[in-house]
């Protein structure tokens, strides 16, 4: 039971990052493989302003969000968009975002050094007892945030005019531009929010493990796995995927040892890809012939 609870909570962190993959995929059909570095960027941005006593904690968290969000929008404009211009089979963005990942990793390491730094912004210490499992309040906040943000994104896309524009661009960007909607602006906004979420996750995560350049990298595989299991085309996907992946990998590592944890999670990905390639909640892509 303890493993299940901890798995669910851990799944929340993955789900938050998976959401940023889903968000950019829905509107631009691209994934930013540098998400891990945006996690670190958010964390270090919050540390940089941690001594500003006039800025209350939510403001410092917001700095983490905004730093990653602004860089994210710029990365989209200058390093993703130019490499998607050759039609739907143009996947040069794969290489350019991986390159962004390396460059950012090295830049952050040069500036901040490789060793983890303590981060106190938005730290909530202590644990709560849930069904016999001791869960850190900080992790609980992260998991709760993943749920709240996912629900918020779903409401925004389903109920607002901005969401309507997003869905239109997602279904047919060329026709959306005939309606006066700029697919590029919608894409940049998606990257802004998606990378901001990664930065936000970074601030909160760093309060438990410290900020280091590679802090996001370790989460990358799990969050891509979560996004794929849930389905890259669905905002509900990360919640389901995160829960399944988190619980499965925790239970497996309790039963058979830590090495089986991640293996079990990745086996889940393979099973899903074989049985339902679009993900559990995904929608089959219509292929134009």
């Amino acid at each position: 039971m303890e493993a299940v609870v901890i798995g669910l909570v851990l799944g929340g962190l993955y789900a938050l990052l998976a959401q940023s993959f889903v968000l950019t995929f829905i509107t631009t059909r691209t994934l930013n493989f540098a998400v891990g570095e945006f996690v670190a960027l958010g964390a270090f941005a919050a540390i940089a302003v941690s001594s500003w006593s006039w800025l209350p904690t939510p403001g410092k968290v917001a700095v983490g969000f905004l730093a990653a969000a602004v860089v994210g929008a710029l990365v989209y404009r200058f390093l993703v968009l130019p490499f998607t211009t050759q039609g739907e089979h143009d996947v040069r963005w794969l290489l350019s975002t991986v390159a962004v990942s390396f460059v950012m990793l090295n830049l952050i390491t040069n500036v901040e050094g490789p060793s983890p730094q303590r981060s106190d912004t938005a730290r909530i210490s202590g644990t709560v007892d849930i069904l016999g499992a001791g869960v850190g309040k900080q992790q609980l906040v992260l998991a709760g945030l993943a749920v709240v943000i996912s629900l918020l994104l779903i409401v925004v896309t389903q109920r607002t005019s901005v969401g309507l524009m997003m869905r239109a661009v997602s279904q047919d960007p060329d026709t959306a531009s005939l309606m006066g909607v700029s697919p590029r602006a919608v894409g940049a906004a998606s990257y802004f929010v998606a990378m901001g979420l990664a930065g936000l996750a970074g601030v909160l995560y760093a309060a438990t493990v410290g900020a280091s350049p590679v802090m996001g990298e370790t989460l990358l595989v799990a969050s891509i796995a979560v996004a794929i299991v849930g389905g890259l085309g669905s905002l509900w996907g990360p919640l389901l995927g995160g829960a399944l992946y988190g619980v499965l990998s925790q239970v497996a590592s309790y039963q058979w040892g830590a090495i089986w944890g991640e293996t079990a999670g990745l086996l889940l990905v393979i099973v899903v890809l074989v049985a339902k390639p679009e993900g559990l909640l995904g929608r089959r892509m219509e292929v134009k012939l």
């Binding site: 524009m165 869905r167 279904q171 006066g180």
Partner: peptide
């Protein structure tokens, strides 16, 4: 080229964006 998974009303609402 209607947006296939939007409703008729939503399609027309998108047209208004350009107005």
């Amino acid at each position: 080229k209607l947006f296939p998974r939007l409703t008729v009303g939503e399609n027309i609402a998108l047209g208004r964006r350009a107005a």
